[in-house]
Design a protein around this nucleic acid. Structure first.
Lengths: 209, 209
DNA sequence: TGACTGAACTTACTCTCAGTAAGTTACTCC
DNA sequence: GGAGTAACTTACTGAGAGTAAGTTCAGTCA
């Protein structure tokens, strides 16, 4: 009975770095989403993973760093969802509508994601704020591309104007998403997308000339 | 020489509550604007006023409370500026344009204000967040009123749709303001207002029926 | 098999900062 | 001048971000 009591797989305590990083990131995303940035301590996250705080620091550097990692991953997922919807559409008008729907749907399906990304996503003074902006800029770029697609190829378009429109659309959709969650998810993604479409489509048209 | 060395007004150390509160609020607004919420400590603010920290707590309760007080005052000023511009306009189309211009102008003239209000204005998990939302809601209400003015009086308008539009416009203008300051104040208020006007006017028209 | 090495992980701190308890000082009104 | 009160301070507590200095495990080469 000297060596027979060990469990078949003797509870692997240690894991390789990549696996542990993913574990920590998952826990962080969940807890930040539940309690917010301020309300979450690094000890909480470490405890949830069953690991000590310095390990979290070794892998992610700082609280901002960890938060930023959550942010980046979620944004990438959201960007993918919207890009896919846009690219699958038959024409620009459809693409715009599909993009809006995909955006609001994603937030329905990842309710936690939201509070991490936007609701608190702009808080950090410091390096994270800058990086968060960069991720956000990808979105604006996507919208700007869509706007350009909607212009005739030979049209001498005003880049500054396109930027203004893209920033506006990005800001509007973020605000609508926040409002919607606080409003109990009230207007459906379809209703929001339809209204936005109606509001913006003719205006975009008038910017052509 | 026993009593002749005193200064004529012997450096009034103590001030009445209202004056001190204003002094603290001014300092807080300035320092929050310079260093951000996270980067500012209550000791910093107290020191800037030349007062001890507990006094600040006595008057404002908490860091959130002080921040919120800054927020409320600034929002009120901004709301006034925009309201005045809107009310002075001749017709709804002019009103919309004038409102946009007033918004961006205000931020030109109060560069500090901005980072306090929006850039970090949604950070706090807790009571301040809720209160900040309430102040923000005033803005949405103003915009909603403007939208309604633009609809025929007998039109059976869809309140939900109006809310969506108001939230969108509010989100768009906030985002544009952030982008503008990071962009070195680049598009002029006039340019921004014109483009927004062009983008939204015909869309609003199409929502009428 | 057993010493060797490096990566995974921990204990036990420091330091900054929000918030507080309990007291002290200056002004005001009689 | 003394009583009462509002303005203000000293000196603390506690939480949590971040770190220095180690310890333990897992694979590797002899």
């Amino acid at each position: 009975m000297t060596s027979t009591t060990d469990s078949p797989v003797p509870v692997k305590r240690r894991r390789d770095r990549a696996a542990r990083e993913r574990e920590i990131l998952d826990a962080a995303e969940r807890i930040f989403g539940e309690r917010g940035y301020q309300g979450t301590s690094m000890d909480d996250i470490a405890a949830a993973v069953g690991v000590s705080k310095p390990l979290v620091y070794q892998y992610y550097g700082s609280k901002d760093g960890l938060f930023l990692a959550c942010l980046s991953r979620l944004r990438a997922q959201l960007l993918d969802a919207v890009s896919d919807a846009v690219l699958a559409a038959a024409d620009p008008e459809q693409a715009m509508y599909a993009g809006f729907v995909a955006w609001f749907r994603f937030l329905d399906e990842h309710p936690r994601a939201w509070s991490v990304m936007v609701d608190e996503g702009m808080l950090a003074a410091g390096p994270a704020a800058q990086a968060a902006d960069e991720v956000r800029a990808e979105f604006v770029a996507l919208i700007a591309t869509m706007v350009r697609l909607n212009l005739p190829a030979d049209h001498q378009h005003d880049e500054e104007e396109i930027q203004i429109v893209a920033q506006s659309v990005s800001g509007a959709t973020e605000r609508l998403a926040i409002w919607r969650t606080r409003n109990g998810g009230s207007p459906t993604p379809g209703k929001l997308a339809t209204t936005l479409q109606q509001l913006l489509w003719r205006g975009l048209d008038s910017l052509r000339g």
